[in-house]
Write a protein that binds this DNA or RNA. Structure first.
Lengths: 182, 182
DNA sequence: TATTGTTATACTCTATAACTATA
DNA sequence: TATAGTTATAGAGTATAACAATA
């Protein structure tokens, strides 16, 4: 008993039948989750795929720049890049002009994986917009793009990387020592 | 040096101008982030607000049921509920019929906070769909709802709670012991 | 024996702050 | 002195697995 609501809903309007904001958050999380599942088939996490795409667009940048773009501290970027380098997907090259810097590049194998990544992305797009006509899909994309613009979201950068698992689970062995200049 | 791409983009179509799937993930993360900021003004996290709303809709359910709905293990739910109970927002009542169960209820204060929560939600909705006409907003909401339906997303449940900070940071003191039947 | 609530533990992930080498 | 990269460490957050009480 007590003086709190006992079973009936309190007076006032019923909860709105789910507005656009909530639907966006819900669908966005769902889209990210689904995409992560597809990426797992390529043994990639979303941040890893983000780096690969970044390197395809602008190769040779420094680790710090890339870490900034991905929204992670440079210290975290090291192990993050280590794993991809061990797998032969990316490559560090000393910058001769400024020997403090590493230029990070995609390897040939990394480039090939990027192709698979594009395919996964396209399939994901289809799966997610399933049930919409071509016209409706365009309509939706247009509205979303306007919202993203209005909200100041830079195209192609996913803010959620900040709080995302950076490595695939089940990393059995420790990182192989790759130190040279120490 | 090396046989990898040296600066030009590889052949093939340029990256698509950001499809609907990516925009959804991006906007969804943005919406969640923005909402979390507004929630912080009420000293609430998204999962906490989720529980409050859950309790408003169906009071008196057991901790296990609620934990399941929120997508967290029951063990985690304990501390989660402890904090809200200490703050006087929710209340545990023994179920006399089955003394293993606690009925979880909203307190009066919790109900009052829920009002503020509704207001924040409405403002958030406006802020996020800013720049759209009323007709466009309806259009967008309709499309999103159809997608959510098609994807099998239950209305009102946010899958992202699973991987979300459950408590507000800067908890200075430890939890006050509230044990009685031990 | 099964289930709810709870606690304890061990583990993962993270940021922070040092430290090295280059500039 | 400042900056890129790196390592070490300490802290937060988590799931898992025990445990107690009740059924």
């Amino acid at each position: 008993m007590g003086m709190t609501n006992e079973g009936e809903r309190p007076p006032g309007p019923p909860p709105p039948p789910t507005g656009a904001a909530f639907l966006l958050a819900q669908l966005g999380a769902h889209a990210a989750e689904l995409f992560a599942e597809r990426l797992a088939e390529l043994d990639l996490t979303p941040p890893q795929s983000g780096l690969l795409r970044l390197l395809a667009d602008s190769p040779g940048r420094s680790q710090r720049e890339l870490a900034d773009d991905l929204g992670m501290p440079p210290s975290r970027f090291v192990a993050f890049a280590d794993e991809l380098e061990e797998r032969g997907l990316i490559e560090r090259r000393r910058n001769p002009a400024d020997r403090r810097l590493y230029e990070v590049h995609l390897t040939d194998e990394g480039g090939k994986l990027l192709e698979g990544l594009r395919k996964v992305g396209a399939e994901h797009e289809c799966r997610l917009t399933d049930g919409l006509s071509g016209q409706e899909r365009d309509q939706l994309t247009g509205l979303l793009r306007r919202l993203a613009d209005r909200q100041g979201l830079s195209p192609g950068v996913h803010p959620g990387f900040r709080s995302m698992r950076t490595e695939r689970t089940e990393r059995t062995g420790r990182r192989a020592g790759r130190r040279s200049g120490r």
